[in-house]
Design a protein around this nucleic acid. Structure first.
Lengths: 340, 340
DNA sequence: GTGAAAGCGCTAACAT
DNA sequence: ATGTTAGCGCTTTCAC
């Protein structure tokens, strides 16, 4: 069984590989009749373009790299799904890397992607990442990069995020309107823009509605169940105890819910809880968890779309584009008092 | 800035590209002194092997393809993580494809992976898949394949699964020992070996313990929350109502729990529930869901390891190996009666 | 509109 | 132990 290459197609049609290549790539200078013949024969002989050879010659791999902190967080799985939809529709493959929230693995991942000659990189940075040389290096090499969700400003790298400030503001506002009086916040690592923005949104809402506020009601966690639990432990030890909490994301909120249940504090009656991310489990908890949906599929699609456009005009200095999606609040039991 | 290739390294060292290549690949016939010089220079000049060129020549891409039904199921995310650990440790990259539980996308995915010249394929088939020509074609082309979790027998394709029969047997046995008398089963699509095996395990336990059994207690679902709900609806409409259910996986079990809560049937007091997969949400439900853990990370690692060995002896007829992992039962609230 | 020819960067069979 | 040579399959510049 002979391998079918453009050379054998050329022989069969008494022409040259160059013509075949052009015909297959719909080059304008090739006559329609020739194109038809070539496509027909290719079809008949089940010709498949050798992407490796094509990549070597053209420098394009039609592969993009995706770096995520963890596939155990349904949020990221869902974004990747969005990315895939657009990628596949445009003939791109996805090389996936999980960084395990570690800067070291993230660096290795970028290395691996570069050495695989990906045409572009989509990344949501790890909690640990404070040094961005791996990304600026990649950028220097001319590989377009787009952040999604967890972005970093000031690097001239494009990004797609939701409006974290707005989402946080609206969630806090909702708790206020539900009649909670002393609303606390569990934050994430504040060196990350996402988490910082959410805290600012929370603070802004508290201020705008002239709510009582205490620095004791700010607990810096690390986006984990444990820090949610610890936060509640801290809050309930205070003289002036909060009666609601806006958590920076759902795992912290989940920890909070668990600890509240442990301590037999009724949610939402005596304590309101609002999360962020709308993780898969949020709607299945008891009480179900109110949360800010981040439009994961859309985020993935937009990120990929943006990357496509950056890859298209590689010549230009590639203006840095930042897309902000609107958050979508999902009101469930944990934040809605039965009493009005 | 000149691109650094083996040719420029060769010029600097007054030798030939071939020697550089061999030195870099640790060819035994190259002297240690030369290897040292080459490695030192490569390091100094920040040389990176061009994998594309290497692949074109050697026919190896050091990339494997992974096909999963959905990244929204944490089970698969976790298996992929296991795969990645072993893959990265061996210098392999992962091309990811989600099939959305669709045979059509699965076929396209295999096509895409083949045209990317992956060295091997790991796949967990979609619910829909009944026709396996896409896989037998790939196999015919000499691409090693390994099933994980959702496998198909009789194709001569290797697999790594957990002992579904045993897990189901043990889960059912546990319910029996907890004193439930009329244990029902929500199954999945029975054309899939996984789900069929689980049903058989359930039946075997029922028989061995001489439990009362009725065909009405067998509900064929489609591994979804909805079918779990529907199953409970069906069970509770019976004259002889079951008092426990072993669900084929956690989403069905979740649906069951929800519907039971809806109908105010106390779990585990009046009704026991056992799931399968130990999805992320299982431990966070109220009551928490007992489930069979499938050793996801281990499964991923084993699958990749098996694929590596298949790829290594591509010459041999590649004996078909089937690895079965032991299930791990996780006993939580939903199946443990407080009363003895 | 098509052909000729070069070459992407690397590897491997064959030579010495 | 190292050099020579050829070529993986494709794209693309330059001819005509």
């Amino acid at each position: 069984m002979e391998k079918v290459t453009i050379t054998v197609l050329a022989e069969k049609l008494n022409t040259t590989p160059a013509t075949i290549s052009r015909a297959l790539n719909n080059h304008p200078a090739i006559s329609d009749s020739m194109k038809k013949k070539v496509h027909a024969l290719a079809e008949k002989m089940n010709y498949k373009r050798n992407k490796i050879a094509s990549s070597l010659r053209s420098g394009k791999t039609y592969t993009i790299g995706v770096l995520i902190p963890s596939a155990n967080i349904s949020f990221f799985g869902s974004v990747v799904h969005g990315i895939e939809i657009v990628a596949n529709a445009n003939g791109y493959n996805i090389l996936l890397y999980q960084t395990n929230e570690s800067r070291k693995f993230e660096g290795k991942g970028v290395e691996a992607l570069l050495s695989a000659h990906v045409d572009g990189i989509l990344i949501s940075v790890s909690k640990e990442t404070k040094d961005y040389t791996h990304l600026s290096n990649a950028k220097k090499l001319g590989v377009p990069i787009v952040f999604f969700d967890r972005a970093k400003e000031g690097l001239g790298i494009s990004s797609v995020v939701i409006d974290d400030y707005k989402g946080a503001f609206m969630a806090t506002e909702h708790l206020i309107k539900q009649g909670y009086k002393r609303i606390a916040h569990i934050s994430g690592p504040l060196h990350m823009k996402v988490f910082n923005d959410r805290m600012e949104g929370y603070k802004a809402a508290m201020q705008q509605y002239k709510m009582k506020f205490s620095d004791d009601w700010l607990f810096e966690g690390d986006v984990s169940i444990e820090s949610g639990k610890a936060a509640i432990g801290h809050f309930l030890s205070l003289k002036e105890k909060p009666d609601a909490v806006f958590a920076v994301e759902d795992y912290s909120a989940l920890g909070a819910l668990k600890e509240l249940k442990n301590r037999k504090v009724a949610v939402p009656e005596r304590f309101g809880v609002f999360g962020f991310a709308n993780e898969l489990f949020a709607e299945h908890l008891t009480p179900s968890l109110s949360s800010v949906d981040q439009q994961t599929i859309l985020m993935g699609k937009e990120a990929m779309q943006l990357l496509l456009s950056l890859m298209a005009n590689k010549k230009q200095p590639a203006a840095c584009t930042n897309i902000t999606l609107d958050p979508l609040l999902i009101f469930r039991e944990s934040s809605q008092r039965k009493i009005k």
